[in-house]
């Protein structure tokens, strides 16, 4: 239909070239953090875990004050009570309120774990970064030290340290951190070494960027993901270690409360009062599960290699 061609052509008008618009980015650019958060939000399990964790955290903060009793007062008129309106989670062999003890214990366990993880983070990142950045002989010596330390089964050393030092929150934290930072140091060093040999660092060097700027602008922002992920996994393992130490009688002692102390107390009256073991067990398992799932989710969200 050649005669129609003319009409159709009339419908088309030449568009004016707008070079400015072509290059315009219509969507606001996302920071690395926003980008990760967007990806984490799509992970249902991780978000549910995050919500549960926040609830547990709030209960750990406020729980001991919500109930009718405090966590240390004994009441010999009300020993071994089943959960009821007065004592929501029952009472233990000294008549202490389990509800208050559980949330006080959660508070202490979380506190120990977070402090230990923070200490690991500071020492590990500093050691790993110094080792990777200085390189050469310093790096060599520092790595030999790490190699020897990784050969030591850390829990044994923690147990020995706990025997020598007076049991307490600070002691547990220090004992766990003495060997705990090694993992972080290795990860950070390996990652910085990898980054150092990448093109964008070379490009920055070629452009004459000072070393301090390369460290702050390129190396550290790129390492944060790994540090965050590793910390997310350090916390549950620290909670486990605390509970483990209390369970074999080396951690905190009653009337202090921690999840390990409660599980240990609950275990001794397991035959008759299983709820004394059950409730703290549920709390510790919930914390560990949610931290692990959230850690997995964060790894998927922060690690660019997992992007699909």
């Amino acid at each position: 239909m050649p005669q129609d061609t003319h009409n159709i052509d009339a419908l088309f008008k030449p568009a004016a070239a707008r070079p400015g618009d072509q290059e315009k980015i219509s969507k606001k650019s996302l920071s690395a953090f926003q980008d990760s958060w967007r990806r984490l939000r799509q992970n249902k399990a991780a978000i549910i875990s995050l919500v549960i964790l926040i609830v547990m955290l709030l209960l750990a903060i406020a729980g001991p004050w919500i109930g009718h009793h405090n966590y240390y007062s004994t009441d010999y008129g009300a020993v071994y009570q089943k959960p009821n309106a007065e004592h929501w989670f029952g009472t233990d062999k000294f008549g202490r309120d389990q509800w208050a003890r559980i949330w006080q214990g959660t508070r202490i366990s979380l506190l120990i774990a977070v402090l230990a993880a923070a200490l690991d983070l500071v020492i590990g990142v500093a050691y790993g970064a110094v080792s990777a950045l200085l390189g050469g002989r310093t790096d060599n010596v520092m790595q030999r030290i790490i190699e020897i330390l990784t050969g030591i089964p850390s829990l044994i050393i923690i147990i020995l340290l706990m025997m020598v030092m007076k049991p307490g929150i600070v002691t547990i934290m220090i004992a766990m951190s003495i060997t705990g930072w090694v993992n972080m140091a290795r990860l950070v060093r390996a990652h910085i070494m990898k980054l150092k040999s990448q093109e964008f660092v070379l490009a920055a060097r070629t452009l004459g960027t000072p070393t301090s700027r390369i460290i702050w602008k390129h190396l550290i922002p790129n390492t944060i993901g790994i540090i965050v992920i590793n910390t997310m996994f350090t916390i549950p393992s620290a909670i486990f270690t605390e509970a483990f130490l209390s369970f074999i009688g080396l951690g905190l002692q009653s009337p202090m409360s921690s999840l390990g102390v409660l599980i240990n107390d609950g275990f001794s009256s397991l035959n008759t009062q299983p709820y004394l073991l059950l409730y703290p067990s549920i709390v510790i398992v919930l914390i560990m599960v949610t931290f692990n799932i959230l850690g997995d989710g964060l790894r998927d969200a922060l690690d660019p290699r997992m992007r699909k």
Partner: peptide, 9 residues
């Protein structure tokens, strides 16, 4: 996530 001593008990 489940501590082995909890599971054992």
């Amino acid at each position: 996530s489940i501590p082995n001593f909890v599971l054992a008990a």
